[in-house]
Design a protein around this nucleic acid. Structure first.
Lengths: 345, 345
DNA sequence: CTCCAATATTTACGTATGTAAAAAAGGGAG
DNA sequence: CTCCCTTTTTTACATACGTAAATATTGGAG
């Protein structure tokens, strides 16, 4: 059962009687070798255990076939969904994906970038840490290799390829829906450290003004450094509900995790948000976090098209790698959000 | 601003006037070089941009300093929590972590294992795919390098190092609690494809019998291949509640995601699980999924000590790497669960 | 000033594979 | 059977760095 183990291509070449350069070509692309020889090699590989060395193969190639991906958090299903989409698309393109998580720490993000450069990755896909990221790190990556930002984009890097969501559209959409079907919503915001959060807040304000309503933002002050989004939403709304405020209002939350906290606060005060309750409390979110359908009440939200974002990020980085680009003209791709009507609003 | 870029250690050595072998030793461990030389090298590095090549450094070392981690899913906060703990512990130990996700597919898991072998990783930490994993793959990994299983353990691999949760204890604990405080629970199971799920089911039955109650298992039949855990829990309980059954019972779910589905089903039938409701519906879970505190009702559960599991897995693999092991004696480490009493039971 | 020990440099080879060019082998057409 | 084209083999060098041994340098003690 246990096959003889062969450690180098050199040994393999004597073991199955095919020259090493031919083997090298075989492992890179079997079609480069005559069919009969392919057969002989495959038969030989059946009889022994041999795995080409990853480092040696990458050391002297013009292309490593690796793309590096950085995500800011692991404990957020939005980013894991995005990562899943990226990994699947990259796999289909025959790329090896090396994923690093910043763990909310710019120093770790910077180290991940170093690792990618030291690996000569073909390209890097980065979802940054809001404005905690060290932009010099992104700039350096961009200057050295194909680089695409995902999800969130610093205003100070306008010349970078980006794939994300059209927040004016997505936030406008749900704002419009809430206004149309009931009371104009207040906006439950985040402390202003996150570009997407700011974009959504601005989009909310714009849409409200467009419809002739007075925008109203709450929760922009920092409650608790390092707390989860859910805690933020719960803390803010708990305080408001305790004072008897917002109990019959519509509340658009900056994202679903904040909305989960808000719904929780409502429940603690005996409130059940829902569109059925005319004139009563409504709560909506943004993102279509995977658990939305299972919440009580299930959460009305706008879905980000994470699947499209991941696929597009991969196809775009491939374009840049292949050089099919207008030099100096960054491509900004924004996908629309889709309304997900559920019970909460 | 833009420093001259240097690509090889050779060039660097002429640029700052220190020999290449000395530089090599500096990059591996600066204490191997006299302080004054260290200063000179660091000053030189300030003036140029140089990053050692990842592949070249790993090619000829006895140890790569890399550990490979495989997790079965990304879209599950339990595994991302575990992964986070592993990454932090490995980082502290100075290891580079390469993470691969199986995406529920044994073929992808097998490819990840190949990648690790081709990288000469120092060790592999694997959370398997229930019984979907190809055990020959695990066996092969184990035969070639330090290998530790996490979270779930095939009964057919008793001779492998393992770190996980003591399910008889954890499930026994919550079963005992439910019996003590109210009606003895029924067990909402999973289709029998998951070792942990089976262990918990067995532990539930054992605890019930020990306490003189009749165990009762539901949901062990497959409802919908590929559905999420939440869907499974919701579908099973929705069907039962629709027939008016289990509406005043205690239900222990095989895990929190199934419990989330069960709570959702309850809500759709106008039921509000809770320990306050004497004699009424109670629902409990297992794992302490990060969202449990924010659900309505918040979910009573048993926490797995993911942090301890991740840390221990790393420290154990380090022991094996260093050779501090009783050859042939696998170490099985099981951490106890902790009761998390919340509203739902 | 000389000697000794610590440190650095030189030299040389090793790691596993990619890659290019020249030489040899193989196969089919004429 | 020979010629020509395709494929393979041979040969040689490249990749970027690790590592060991021999040699040179340095700094301080005596």
């Amino acid at each position: 059962m246990t096959k003889p183990r062969i450690n180098t291509m050199e040994e393999l070449s004597v073991a199955i009687g095919v020259s090493r350069p031919t083997l090298s070509r075989f492992f890179q692309d079997p079609t480069l070798v005559k069919e009969k020889t392919v057969k002989r090699i495959q038969d030989g590989l059946e009889r022994v255990e041999y795995i080409p060395n990853f480092f040696a193969t990458r050391l002297n190639r013009k292309s490593t076939g690796i793309i590096g991906v950085i995500i800011p958090y692991l404990n957020d299903l939005f980013f894991t969904k995005l990562l899943e989409s990226v990994e699947v698309a990259a796999m289909e393109a025959g790329l090896t994906v090396i994923t690093q998580c910043s763990h909310s720490d710019p120093a770790i993000e910077a180290r991940a970038a170093e690792t990618f450069m030291s690996m000569n990755v073909d390209g890097a896909l980065v979802a940054p840490l809001g404005d905690h990221s060290d932009q010099a790190v992104h700039q350096r990556l961009k200057s050295r290799l194909p680089f695409v930002l995902m999800d969130s984009r610093p205003t100070t890097m306008p010349d970078v390829d980006f794939v994300g969501t059209n927040h004016p559209q997505s936030t406008g959409l749900i704002t419009e829906y809430l206004c149309r079907v009931g009371e104009p919503p207040a906006f439950l915001a985040m402390p202003r450290v996150n570009f997407n959060a700011l974009e959504r807040e601005a989009a909310y304000i714009a849409q409200m003004e467009k419809m002739g309503f007075e925008p109203e933002v709450l929760g922009a002050e920092q409650i608790n450094e390092g707390a989860h989004f859910e805690d933020h939403g719960e803390a803010i709304m708990d305080a408001e509900f305790a004072r008897g405020k917002y109990t019959e209002r519509s509340i658009l939350c900056v994202n679903d995790r904040v909305a989960i906290g808000a719904i929780r606060a409502a429940a603690r005060h005996g409130l059940m948000p829902g569109r059925a309750a005319k004139g009563g409390l409504r709560i909506a979110g943004h993102d279509d976090y995977p658990l939305c359908p299972y919440l009580n009440p299930s959460l009305t939200t706008v879905a980000q098209n994470t699947d499209a974002i991941g696929k597009k990020a991969v196809s775009r980085i491939l374009e840049i790698i292949r050089g099919d680009v207008n030099e100096g003209v960054p491509q900004i791709t924004l996908f629309d959000g889709n309304l997900k009507l559920r019970e909460s609003a």
